[in-house]
């Protein structure tokens, strides 16, 4: 009798761990990390955005000042200027990426010799670190020895424009790099969308005497639209946050001609260390990004609902 008990005891202890407890054990570390690194900072920074505080003065506690930070930011014409700049940047770069990415996808959808290799080569920019990209595009843009000006027709050194040094061109220089880097991403999503369109739709359209143009507008585009919109959504959110490319290429200059809102936020938070104010700015950006994404998600749902 005793023997049986000693044998079953460990079994019994193991069994006492219920399924729910095991689930909790697996989930808890993730939850704790999520709370510590994401949820807590999210709410703490929301609190800080209503205070006067700087992280480099930890002995001065946050002083509650209500909406003053928001008031100050929203009345600062420079902030509006940077938002406008960011808006222009986002619209331009995402539009170009969508057009070029979709175009590349249309091109690569046709199977030809080496199309697999070409696809892989086109994808390389996505795989590289933005900091590295920033550094070598700086060399590529260099007016004295960079290859960019040479390729667009200025074969004599220093005869072409200084892309990163001229206020009128610097933003375009960043857009070009961003488009170069991320059009392949749009292409990848569009390509998978295009390949999923069944051939019989085109056969039916051919029988229905639809011209290639009509087929593109009435079949190809609507069929790819959901994936194209997802790509645009991702790229819009990312473009809004563009920081690393700017820091690598221009650092926001010349002057403040490439001072995107994320760059300005970085400076406010980590060079001027106005922690309270920059928290408020971060929240303003967050609200805008959420609003814009919601517009996309809504139109995405509308398109999906149609299918």
């Amino acid at each position: 009798m005793q023997l049986t008990q000693t044998q079953t005891a460990p079994m019994h202890r193991r069994r006492s761990l219920t399924d729910v407890q095991i689930q909790v054990l697996f989930i808890a570390p993730t939850i704790i990390l999520l709370v510590l690194w994401n949820i807590f900072p999210l709410f703490y920074s929301l609190y800080l955005s209503f205070t006067e505080f700087s992280v480099i003065k930890p002995d001065v506690p946050p002083a509650w000042i209500g909406l003053q930070n928001y008031n100050k930011l929203l009345n600062d014409p420079r902030i509006w200027q940077y938002f406008a700049l960011t808006g222009r940047y986002v619209v331009t770069t995402v539009a170009l990426q969508a057009i070029i990415g979709f175009g590349l996808a249309l091109f690569l959808r046709e199977r030809f010799k080496g199309s697999g290799l070409v696809t892989t080569l086109i994808l390389i920019p996505i795989m590289m670190s933005p900091v590295v990209i920033g550094l070598f595009w700086k060399l590529i843009y260099n007016p004295a020895f960079g290859i960019f000006n040479y390729l667009i027709g200025y074969s004599v050194p220093n005869s072409g424009p200084d892309w990163l040094g001229e206020a009128s061109r610097a933003l375009w220089a960043i857009i070009i790099v961003d488009v170069w880097m991320w059009s392949p991403f749009v292409m990848l999503l569009c390509l998978s969308g295009l390949k999923a369109i069944p051939d019989y739709l085109y056969e039916a359209a051919a029988i229905d005497r639809a011209s290639p143009w009509f087929q593109f507008w009435r079949i190809t585009l609507p069929q790819v639209a959901p994936l194209l919109l997802i790509a645009i959504l991702f790229r819009t959110i990312e473009a809004f946050k563009t920081f690393d490319l700017v820091m690598g290429l221009t650092g926001g200059g010349p002057g403040d001609s490439t001072e995107l809102i994320a760059v300005y936020l970085y400076r406010a938070a980590f060079t001027r260390f106005t922690t309270g104010e920059s928290s408020a700015l971060a929240y303003i950006i967050l609200v805008i990004v959420i609003a814009v994404s919601n517009l996309y998600v809504r139109s995405l749902n509308r398109i999906r609902g149609e299918q």
Binding site: Y200, L201, E203, A204, A205, A206, I207, D208, R209, A210, S211, F214, R218, I219, P222, Q223, E306, Q307
Partner: peptide
């Protein structure tokens, strides 16, 4: 498209993103 034939496919081959009306109107719109 140059032959003036119409075809009915085994698995219908309707345009999934268009309504029945739009499907039927498709050849006329084209």
């Amino acid at each position: 498209s140059q032959r003036d034939v119409a075809m009915v496919f085994q698995f219908f081959a309707l345009y999934p993103h268009l309504t029945a009306w739009e499907n039927i109107a498709f050849p006329l719109q084209a």
